[in-house]
Computed example of a mutant assay.
Amino acid sequence: MREDDYLFISRLVKEKSGLALAGDKQYLVESRLLPLAREAGIDDLGAFVTQLRRPDAASLRNSVVEAMTTNESFFFRDKVPFEHFTNVMMPYFINARASKRHLRIWCAASSTGQEPYSLAMCLQEMGSKIAGWRIEILGTDISSQALERAKAARYTQFEVQRGLPLHMLAKYFIQKSEGAGEVWEVVPSIRSMVTYQKFNLLDRFSALGVFDIVFCRNVLIYFDPPTKADVLDRISRVLSPDGFMMLGAAETVVGLTEAFQPMAGRRGLYCPTINKVPIAAS
């Protein structure tokens, strides 16, 4: 791929998704663009980029942006965030929201659905502790393809073996035949706890409403510092004053925003700076 073509793709992806492609990612760009080029009946990447530059190629450019986003996900990824959810966040809210019994949770960049379904399973495991509660889980992603998979809630044997405890597989999944193989489908009681919506983290958050918990994991690492800071500041505006934000293990707010403070001894867990760390969660 010519350098000017690579720069065009890099600018396109950055403008549309916030994803900052490093200069050494040309191999990744080529590997993800080739299938799209062939679908369009074009064998040469240079000719494909020429097509992308046309004013009437908006739909094709959107397909390129989706192809460049990373949709890596698996159930209970990294374990610690779900321990924080079960042992820190929910015990706090069960007490603090005892009169309202209503919570809103946002999984930003939810990919193919493993994270929101993992949270739904955690909630189901709490049983009578949250009986009568209305808990909304919203999963958003920029990729239509990833969201369709999330809504279908069907996973391969390989996918359910990555992080999912066996007792939860038996309890919350149904094994079904699909084509030449077997798939595992999330049970309706878990699926009904999650709604999905296409959403770009560069867009305004206000239309989504206010949340008590935001999981924004393993997406900021792909943004440049100004974009990271902007996303974090806007998350702070849609998070309740005593809410929680969960970042990925390799992500931090340090040097990016003063809107959040880390919770001591709780890796990746943050609360708004305007609010003291909840006593019940310390």
Rank of each mutant, 00 (worst) to 15 (best):
Q175A: 14
F223R: 01
G209A: 02
S240C: 13
A180G: 05
L247Y: 05
V210P: 02
V210A: 05
Q197D: 05
P226A: 10
R204E: 09
L220T: 02
G179W: 08
F223S: 00
Y222E: 06
G209C: 05
S206C: 03
I190F: 12
M193R: 15
A180C: 10
I213H: 04
D224C: 03
E178Q: 14
M193I: 10
R191M: 11
M193C: 05
V194M: 12
L247H: 06
Q197M: 08
A250S: 15
S236I: 07
T227H: 03
K198Q: 15
F211T: 11
L201Q: 08
N200F: 12
P241N: 09
V183Q: 14
D242H: 13
F211L: 07
F211Q: 12
L232V: 01
V187R: 12
S240T: 15
S177A: 14
V219D: 02
R204Q: 05
D242C: 02
F205E: 04
L232I: 02
P225I: 02
L202Y: 01
F199W: 07
S189T: 10
F215R: 05
R204G: 08
D230N: 01
C216W: 02
E185T: 14
S177G: 11
A249G: 08
M245W: 11
S236V: 10
F199N: 00
P241C: 14
Q197N: 08
V186F: 09
S192I: 01
V210S: 07
Y196N: 12
D203P: 04
F205S: 04
